[in-house]
């Protein structure tokens, strides 16, 4: 097995198809300092890291959301995990940028880290304590960066709440208008910007869940803005 596997890897590498395993995420040393400042109040990482206010972050790359042993996650995080959210560069980056836009009901009370370079540095540090992607080729997706940034022009679109109300009828087959949350989360009163970011995260399939990926998939930028405008005003 080993003998047949190695040449295959060599061919992949020669052909330039080898996963970008050694991709530099950022400056891990700066990331360590950032971790102390931004994260260490609640999280431990490194040798002997334990559960504190938040779960330990060793091995977070490639881990399914809401699955660290013994940690009592929010229902929202547990649901995202069972829907298939896995922590990779692609999903951790938007989560650190705005936790509630990716996992609306998360218990992590963190305002988010807006600076792209700072996030990259922090992620480079976090990855030091996960399996190193360069050692495990099949872990490739955890090591690739994608551009999830929303064009500010999209966020700036003023939605038409009347159109939003019509479109919302489709949402309200499942999401109750009065904000009840039983098995399906409430979207009533969701802040406009978070709503827009979340819908685009479904469109890009960063957020898991096949129904929502499909529903968001056919909404254009104006329609998402219209829905956000409508739901933000619902009480």
């Amino acid at each position: 097995m080993g003998r047949r596997f190695l040449p295959a890897l060599a061919i992949l590498a020669a052909a330039g198809l080898f996963p970008a395993a050694a991709e530099e995420i950022g400056d891990a040393a700066r990331g360590a300092a950032l971790f102390k400042r931004e994260c260490a109040v609640c999280h431990e990482i490194g040798e002997g890291a334990m559960r504190r206010i938040g779960p330990p972050l060793n091995g977070v790359f490639g881990r399914r959301a809401g699955s660290a042993d013994g940690f009592a996650y929010s229902r929202a995080m547990a649901r995202m995990g069972s829907d298939g959210l896995t922590w990779t560069l692609e999903t951790l980056d938007p989560y650190l940028e705005n936790p509630k836009a990716l996992v609306s009901g998360t218990k992590m009370t963190y305002r988010g880290l807006k600076d792209t370079t700072a996030r990259s540095d922090l992620l480079a540090y976090l990855r030091e304590w996960s399996d190193k992607p360069q050692d495990i080729p099949e872990a490739e997706p955890t090591a690739l960066k994608t551009d999830h940034e929303l064009d500010p022009a999209i966020l700036a679109i003023e939605g038409d709440p009347d159109y939003g109300e019509y479109l919302a009828a489709e949402c309200q087959t499942c999401h109750q208008r009065d904000g009840s949350d039983l098995g399906i989360p409430s979207i009533t009163g969701w802040p406009r910007e978070d709503f827009v970011v979340a819908m685009h995260a479904y469109k890009k399939k960063l957020r898991p869940h096949p129904v929502m990926q499909m529903m968001a998939g056919r909404l254009n930028d104006e329609e998402i803005a219209a829905l956000a405008a409508f739901f933000a005003t619902l009480e």
């Binding site: 649901r79 069972s82 829907d83 298939g84 309200q172 087959t173 499942c174 999401h175 109750q176 208008r177 009065d178 009840s180 949350d181 039983l182 098995g183 399906i184």
Partner: peptide
């Protein structure tokens, strides 16, 4: 996932009957 899907169906029933 199957359990989450079932729970989601309960949420859907509550949602659609209210609708």
């Amino acid at each position: 996932l199957r359990k989450a899907t079932y729970q989601e169906s309960l949420g859907w029933y509550a949602g659609i009957t209210a609708d």
